[in-house]
Simulated scan of single mutants.
Amino acid sequence: MKTVIYYFTGTGNSLAAARKIAGALGETELIPIASLADTPGTIAPDADRVGIVCPVYDCGVPVMVARFAERLDLSQAGYTFAVVTMGGIGVSALHQLNGIFNRRQNRRLDAAFAVKMPGNFPPLMRSVPGEKCGKTLGRADRRLAEIAEAIGSGRSVSPGFEPVSWLVNVLSYGPFVKGTRNAAEAFSVSDACTGCGTCTRVCPAGNLTLTDGRPAWGRRCELCCACLHFCPTEAIQLNVMLGTEGRGRYRHPDLTVADMVSQRGE
């Protein structure tokens, strides 16, 4: 049985989750959503099972993922699922996807899952220390094994309901969506920048360019913070909420720069 999993990742948690599920299911194709962001028209996968794996942003899905879901035709899929990775709460992101599919195709996901992984938005939470991070990833792997078993069995799974997640989504997700495209003003770069260009390569939205050897942000930001987390000198800061100075950096231990570059189909 063929499975297609579409994924979006900024620091590797969702890609690691997609790989874990794919390895358990077999005969699975992983397709980065970022590689399809600029392609026109409907996307109709030729597969028995179709899934989306992505992170939670402000108790919703990334803007790029929401726009992708609007274009995804699930009419030929026998079984559909979604998995969201999150540092705290975010089941409402699964309800958001259900709402998109129900409104456009009169169909809901057959199964929806949430898995906790290390948080990676420094203005809100500090990076998890090594030993604690390892334990969190270990628990996530066990949870992902359970998720893969449920998907492989074709089980119907409800996303459940988190009142706080729903409330945060209602209050914060709209402003988040409006603010992402103007996030350029919130980033800064210090003199520690070496002009290596890593930030421009890892951005899944292709939103950064080097100008006079320093990164410049455009108007396609997803606020995934890949640029910030991958900067080898920690020269990039995001100046919102508590800021990011001294709050650590994170990326999944299996994630590479090459993984991020290939996410854009390059």
Rank of each mutant, 00 (worst) to 15 (best):
110 D>H: 15
137 L>N: 12
130 G>K: 14
143 R>M: 07
88 G>Q: 14
157 V>G: 03
205 A>Q: 15
201 R>L: 15
131 E>G: 01
174 G>W: 12
87 G>F: 06
154 G>V: 05
145 A>N: 09
176 F>M: 12
165 S>K: 02
167 L>W: 14
106 N>T: 04
165 S>F: 07
160 G>E: 04
167 L>K: 09
172 S>E: 09
126 R>M: 11
91 V>C: 10
91 V>S: 15
95 H>D: 12
184 A>K: 15
209 T>S: 15
140 A>M: 07
120 N>K: 00
134 G>N: 12
138 G>I: 02
208 L>D: 06
193 C>H: 10
137 L>V: 08
142 R>D: 13
181 R>T: 13
216 A>N: 07
84 V>C: 12
152 G>M: 07
95 H>N: 10
164 V>W: 02
97 L>R: 02
132 K>Y: 11
210 L>F: 09
136 T>S: 05
209 T>G: 04
220 R>V: 02
108 R>G: 13
179 G>T: 05
124 L>K: 02
177 V>M: 13
141 D>E: 12
147 I>A: 05
92 S>D: 09
125 M>T: 12
99 G>P: 06
126 R>L: 08
135 K>A: 13
92 S>M: 09
191 D>N: 14
110 D>F: 01
152 G>I: 06
154 G>L: 06
218 G>V: 01
113 F>C: 02
216 A>S: 13
203 C>F: 07
214 R>T: 12
83 V>G: 03
90 G>Q: 04
169 N>I: 01
144 L>Y: 01
117 M>F: 13
111 A>M: 05
85 T>H: 03
187 F>N: 01
219 R>V: 10
139 R>Y: 11
151 I>T: 02
172 S>R: 11
119 G>E: 07
149 E>G: 06
184 A>E: 14
109 L>C: 03
164 V>S: 01
157 V>W: 03
109 L>K: 04
219 R>A: 14
172 S>L: 11
207 N>K: 09
146 E>A: 10
166 W>Y: 12
186 A>T: 10
145 A>F: 00
161 F>M: 09
89 I>H: 10
